[in-house]
Design a protein around this nucleic acid. Structure first.
Length: 800
DNA sequence: GCCGGCGCTATAT
DNA sequence: TAGCGCCGGC
């Protein structure tokens, strides 16, 4: 959903950039964005239970497009749901089911066109579908990771760690998460993206001509985040009547969200939901401290460091429960369902994508390689003669990533025979890519000699990782210097996910230009004291890629938010320390400064509201029932009483949960706000603190049921009993699928029939939980390890 | 002027 | 699913 109105408000700093401008960089991509679009190519098949992988083809074409332009994609997939978003999920599910029923009805009436429209609205992307995509990514050695919870946080983490240089998504939330370079609206025809650079925030000003415009001049990242939350975000609906503009205006006037909320309440025009400020802080924690998977440490970490002194169970569960490293890794690799935690079910085992490094032509098929028949049965036997379009494989200019010794997955078997260089014949793509490679190597040598890299640097190992971070990741090993060449043949139509569109003019220009000189290169040697980096946005600062590293993580020591008295005017933030044109790259910094995860980073005021700090719990498997999670939407849904000026009733209405913000205890309000704003921490022995603590616990208690329902899924390894399918109150995304006979569960213990029917090898009565051996076999098949070897031909288009 | 609900649109081929 | 424009309400 993102922040409503944010992207239009940032129109002035959105710049369209050609993909080649990001050549040589690793860019994180929200995989579900492509999958969601991809399902439009096959919504009817999906809705009617017909096996298809067209959505994988679609997504893989995007992958290849990026690689074609020298961009190494790093796919990130959504994982399990956070409690805060479940309200949205339930509503979406209801609508999907409605559309499915309607579509089925229309289809039965022969109204197929109308049925298709309904099917378009009912398809959902499941983790099992994402797994099909992952299979293709594995086959082409593309990096990926399944986030433990939300892809957004994971994407932000990858950028913050310097693993990627930018994030390609469609969601404005990434900016709230602190991303420096957010790329939107990938145009596959024009080969462009719309780029928003955080360094340009200072240039965002309100203009009379644009009613949607806002001013971010002088704002800190804390304030930007506060504005976004106040205006309504995925984790917290806004105070009714408050949108982006109002939030921006009021925050500028009131300085802190606490004062904004108090001001809104005192105005009496809008009803402030009960407990809004506490929930605001929880939402803030989602943006700051959500749990993500660290591919190097191979365990879950917080997006930003958490001060354990100001942390508690409520906050801990709200940002996503911890998972034991083994499970976290399985989820990250795609081997475990991120929602049920059960082994991933391969809904289409017959889909066995292979590396497109070269094209195999089985002897039997080779003789018919000129057969242009497009019949499906033919397609299974006939090589795909995609012409030059099918010659684009993984970009050989991206060198292989070193394999992490701790990565347990075995590298995919790569076809041993190599066409292209070895054969002495080169395709046009190879000519281009090799040319790029030479230039890039030359460039890298220049950089290494000047002690800089043109790309990212592994903060974990402190050595240049560009263009492929030398980090451990779920990614499979890249083949040794993959060579662009013909893709494999003999695949059936379902497995046909090859071809990438390109035009020769484009290729020629790339060969001629190389597109190797990033702004980062140019600015790499400019000094800046990153320690003094303040995140008030200055105006105007042209977007520069080199900004990304040291500016990642918008966190700063508690300042104006916690101590507004120190920021009596916003101007105090309007001139942050020099962010001079040209900033230093990470590898110029002392290692200790490369990761801006200072322990002094602000935890804002959260710790002052949530009382006694509690140590970070061990992991989710050791916790007992009663751990609390909160769904703010439900907290609000039934009670929109105003904390101040409740419908004009300023009398001391008896309340079972006395709010700290009521008109009849103004002095307390003052004291509390003073405390929140930084006058000092709340005294825990104070009766008011006890009240607040009680409120926190009440809120958590309300949400406890959500933990039951969402955080502790049927596959959860908690000690408490699981809900059976029949007991489970609602279907979950991963538990459902649409079939000709309606929507039903994938189930934890029942393999869906359609999966079996799709894979004729498995009987309908097969047990749901695929036995390990069987599953492994399927996995082996899925990665082509058992593929047939036969006489191999190569189709090579020469340009020389 | 701003918010927010509503309906429409494109997403791909 | 997300964005956009319209329009009524405040």
């Amino acid at each position: 959903m993102g922040i409503s109105g944010l992207l239009p408000a940032l129109k002035s700093i959105q710049t369209t950039k050609h993909l080649s401008e990001f050549s040589g960089q690793v860019v994180a991509v929200d995989g579900y964005v492509w999958l969601h679009k991809g399902v439009f190519t096959c919504s009817t098949e999906l809705a009617t239970g017909k096996p298809t992988n067209k959505y994988v083809n679609y997504a893989m074409e995007k992958v290849r497009l990026l690689r074609h332009h020298g961009i190494e994609p790093y796919l990130v997939f959504d994982g399990g749901p956070l409690p805060a978003k479940k309200g949205t999920e339930v509503e979406r599910k209801r609508k999907r089911e409605e559309n499915l029923a309607r579509g089925n009805l229309l289809a039965s009436q022969g109204k197929h066109a109308q049925a298709r429209d309904c099917y378009l609205k009912c398809v959902d992307v499941t983790p099992q579908m994402a797994f099909q995509f992952i299979k293709a990514l594995r086959a082409e050695n593309v990096q990926y990771v399944v986030a433990p919870y939300e892809a957004d946080a994971q994407l932000a983490y990858l950028e913050r760690m310097g693993i990627v240089s930018a994030v390609l998504t469609e969601d404005s939330d990434l900016l709230v998460f602190g991303c420096q370079i957010v790329l939107l609206k990938l145009d596959t025809v024009a080969r462009t993206v719309v780029s928003i650079s955080r360094s340009d925030f200072g240039a965002v000003t309100a203009t009379a001509s644009d009613p949607n415009s806002i001013s971010l001049v002088g704002w800190s990242d804390n304030q930007f985040r506060a504005m976004a939350i106040l205006s309504g975000c995925d984790y917290l609906p806004s105070i009714p009547g408050v949108g982006l503009k109002t939030a921006c205006t009021m925050l500028r006037k009131c300085k802190t969200p606490e004062v904004v909320v108090r001001s809104v309440a005192l105005e009496g025009k809008r009803n402030v939901p009960k407990g809004y400020m506490e929930n605001f802080r929880l939402a803030e924690k989602c943006f700051l401290y959500q749990r993500v998977y660290d591919p190097s440490l191979e365990k879950l970490v917080h997006l930003n460091d958490v001060d354990s002194q100001q942390w508690d169970d409520v906050a801990d569960k709200y940002v996503g429960s911890n998972l034991e490293p083994d499970l976290a890794k399985k989820i990250a690799l795609g081997d475990a369902d991120p929602i049920t935690y059960e082994p991933m079910i391969d809904i289409n085992p017959s889909f066995t994508p292979r590396s497109r490094v070269l094209r195999e032509i089985p002897l039997a098929a080779a003789t018919s390689s000129t057969n242009k028949s497009k019949g499906k049965s033919k397609a299974r036997e006939t090589p795909i003669t995609g012409g030059i379009l099918s010659f684009f494989g993984p970009n050989p200019t991206i060198p292989p990533r070193p394999r992490s010794p701790s990565t347990s997955r075995q590298p995919i078997a790569v076809k041993t025979t190599v066409a292209g260089k070895a054969s002495g014949k080169r395709t046009l793509a190879e000519v281009m890519d090799q040319d790029l490679s030479v230039k890039r190597k030359k460039k890298q040598q220049e950089h290494s000699s000047s002690n800089t890299t043109n790309l990212t640097l592994s903060k974990f190992f402190g050595k240049p990782a560009s263009p492929s971070p030398s980090i451990s990741s779920p990614q499979l090993l890249r083949a040794k210097e993959p060579v662009a060449g013909p893709s494999r043949l003999g695949a059936d139509k379902e497995n046909d996910y090859i071809t990438i569109d390109f035009d020769e003019e484009d290729l020629a220009s790339h060969v001629a230009q190389g597109h190797l000189h990033s702004d980062r290169d140019l600015d790499a040697d400019v000094e800046e004291d990153v320690v003094q980096q303040e995140d008030g946005y200055i105006s105007p600062s042209p977007s520069r890629l080199c900004d990304t590293d040291e500016l990642s993580s918008p966190l700063r020591p508690a300042s104006s938010f916690d101590h507004p008295e120190d920021a009596s005017d916003f101007d105090i933030l309007s001139s942050p320390p020099s962010r001079t044109p040209g900033t230093r790259c990470l590898d110029d910094m002392p290692p200790s400064l490369r990761t801006p995860r200072s322990k002094t980073l602000d935890i804002l005021s959260i710790g002052k509201i949530l009382v006694h700090a509690s140590p970070e719990p061990k992991d989710v498997f050791t916790e007992k029932q009663g751990v609390m999670q909160v769904d703010l939407r439900h907290s609000f849904s039934g009670d929109l009483r105003t904390e101040i000026g409740c419908s004009g009733d300023t009398s001391s209405t008896p309340s079972p949960s006395p709010s700290p913000l009521t008109p009849d205890n103004g002095s307390r309000v003052t004291r509390e706000i003073a405390a929140v704003e930084g006058d000092g921490d709340l005294e825990f022995d104070d009766p008011e603190e006890a009240e607040m603590r009680a409120n926190v616990h009440r809120t958590a208690a309300v949400a406890a049921g959500w933990r039951e329902r969402w955080a502790l899924g049927p596959g959860h390894a908690f000690p408490e009993p699981r809900l059976s399918k029949e007991e489970s109150p609602a279907l979950r995304r991963s538990e459902t699928n649409v079939t000709p006979v309606g929507r039903h569960r994938f189930g934890v213990n029942v393999l869906p029939r359609e999966a079996h029917s799709a894979n004729s090898k498995a009987p309908d009565s097969a047990p749901a939980k695929i036995p390990t051996g069987s599953r492994n076999k399927q996995l082996r098949q899925s990665v082509g390890l058992s593929s047939r070897r036969s006489l191999v031909f190569f189709e090579v288009s020469t340009v020389e």
